[in-house]
């Protein structure tokens, strides 16, 4: 028990502007606000890099590096015919990366300001994952028709084993959107809970006072610094893994194995 500090409180979605549409609650929430912030940062980053100078400045090099990073990932993972999915993978990767990084900004030092990690809600990550899965299905059936079902029959599998292999492959295919969305959501949630728990140790140690309390606070603070560094790594890895797995699934849809 973390005492008075509830580690789940940071994930609460609150209404900022109340708004009703045809009897549905479509209020502007803090989650929506931080999505707008992420979008604005991303648009700023790309707009600054799209000046097309002959001799690129630092900003343009950064933007070109971002584009060529996604481009090479798409080329390696999807292969031939993957170029047209590069914009989707790019948006996916950078939206998730920026949302993760904005979520761990330590702005809560300023009283009343509290960053919200958009990707720590399964409603957001599941929509992203379902988008990826829907694109895989649409592309697969568009390109191959009913031959797309041969995805569930591995090459060279003995006929005797097919009644076992096909259901297993089918289940592993259907589970993809859930594992994709769940991974990102849980990784971000776990990191934020960990930071909050150590933060509550700092507060409680200072409240208790005495040399032992200060020692606990100091150690917890050092732990927060370390875990924050690890969180930055996790932010990048989770965004990379999401984009990489999406492009691998797209490879299945485009090339059927």
């Amino acid at each position: 028990m973390a005492g008075d500090i509830n580690p789940m409180e940071q994930f609460e979605v609150g209404k900022l502007i109340n708004f009703q549409l045809f009897g549905h609650d479509v209020s502007f929430t803090n989650s929506a606000l931080f999505m707008v912030v992420v979008f604005a940062l991303l648009a700023l980053f790309m707009a600054g890099g799209l000046k097309r100078q002959l001799i690129p400045g630092r900003w343009q090099v950064a933007a070109e590096g971002a584009v060529s990073f996604i481009d090479s990932m798409v080329n390696v993972s999807i292969g031939k015919g993957g170029k047209k999915f590069a914009p989707y993978i790019f948006s996916l990767f950078f939206f998730i990366l920026f949302a993760n990084l904005v979520g761990v900004l330590p702005l809560a030092i300023v009283p009343g300001l509290h960053t919200f990690a958009v990707t720590s809600h399964i409603t957001v990550t599941a929509v992203l994952a379902f988008f990826s899965f829907a694109i895989v299905l649409v592309v697969g059936f568009w390109k191959h028709g009913f031959k797309f079902f041969s995805l569930f029959v591995p090459h060279g599998a003995p006929m005797v084993l097919l009644p076992v292999i096909v259901p297993v492959e089918l289940i592993s295919f259907l589970v993809r959107p859930f594992s994709l969305g769940l991974r990102l959501f849980v990784a971000m949630t776990a990191g934020h809970i960990l930071l909050e728990v150590f933060g509550s140790f700092v507060v409680q140690g200072l409240n208790a006072g005495g040399p032992l309390g200060w020692l606990v606070s100091l150690l917890s603070f050092l732990m927060i610094v370390g875990v924050s560094a690890l969180e930055l790594l996790v932010c990048a890895i989770q965004a990379y893994v999401f984009a990489l797995l999406t492009s691998l699934y797209l490879h299945d849809a485009v090339h059927l194995h």
């Binding site: 789940m8 991974r183 776990a190 893994v241 990489l244 797995l245 691998l248």
Partner: peptide, 27 residues
């Protein structure tokens, strides 16, 4: 490196699911 991160994602997912189970039990 791509395969490295796929392996990482696959094994990490199971740990995250264990974490989800713990959270579900608690909250």
């Amino acid at each position: 490196q791509g395969r490295l991160f796929i392996g990482f994602a696959a094994s990490e997912l199971l740990g995250l699911i264990a974490f989800v189970v713990a959270i579900l039990i608690l909250f």
